[in-house]
Amino acid sequence: MALAPTDAVGPKPGSAGVRHAPVPSHSAPVTPGKVAIWLFLATEVMFFTGLIGSYIVLRAGSPRGAYSNLYPPNTPLRGLENSRGVVLRSIGPDRSKIEEVLRSLGDRKPDEAEQVIAAVPHGVVPARSAERAEALASALRSAGAVVEVEPLKTFEWPKPYDDAVNPLAINLTAANTFVLICSSVTMVLALSAIQRGNRAKCTLFLLATVVIGSIFLSVQVFEYRQLMFEHHYPSGISANGHFVPSCSLFASCFFTMTGLHGLHVTAGVLALSVVLIASIFGAFSASNYAAIELTGLYWHFVDLVWIILFTIVYLL
């Protein structure tokens, strides 16, 4: 509605210096739109504080023994301290023999053996004592498998790069982080282009931002698919072999934080697409670019949140 000017120029709030000194300030003009978007970002800070803060304290309060290389998360480990795990590195030439050996253990569920084999090279069969583990290991070895016997290792939180407890693919996500940073750069270049009146360049950079943002999202969807459905993980990660939100507190935090961030990225891509279409139709000029600037602020904020999430969820 035209009653509410979006490009009004006025002195900044709370800045007495501008009002008293006639010297032109280097500050950008204050518009209602900018005040509102920064307020919105402040509310977003609080929203992610709720999520990230919960993650921080839940993680810090997670006791040693909540995760282990052999048992599913939060298994009570009393009486299991001397456990050994038989880690199936390779099943060798004859799959059916291995299955037979494993089936002779798991008489309760028919797909248990498949689950362990699917998780190779990290199929874990926990055993309560060293003798049992060695017996199982030699049975498997004689069936042609490559196995190792590992002692019980406990963790407060799944350690990055440890395949027994942490399923996250850091290489992929590091690349994806770089992708999102690139989209932030193209975004700011789009703004810079339109500020100099270069509409074509602005449209191109906006298009690049939408495309790169979509790539980020696609990679995230791919990652989720791998984690939740495609890949099989050892028992230290999930009781049923899939890394799903319900399998551990770590999984809950991971999916909630990255998922809600993903929703924000999706919203950003949608908003940017609208801006892109407007830009194609020549809606912006060197004196009228508020929509690009405001969407950009949101987009950079989403990027900023990802920088933090990548560090604390994947790398730490």
């Binding site: 402040a42 800070v45 609080m46 709720g50 999520l51 939100p245 551990s248």
Partner: peptide, 24 residues
């Protein structure tokens, strides 16, 4: 503006606990 987002995050987590099986 400063308090509601925290409730929203808590409600989101509770909803996920109920429908997605998270463990918050």
């Amino acid at each position: 503006a400063f308090a509601l987002p925290v409730l929203t995050s808590a409600l989101v987590m509770q909803t996920l606990d109920r429908v997605a099986g998270t463990n918050f």
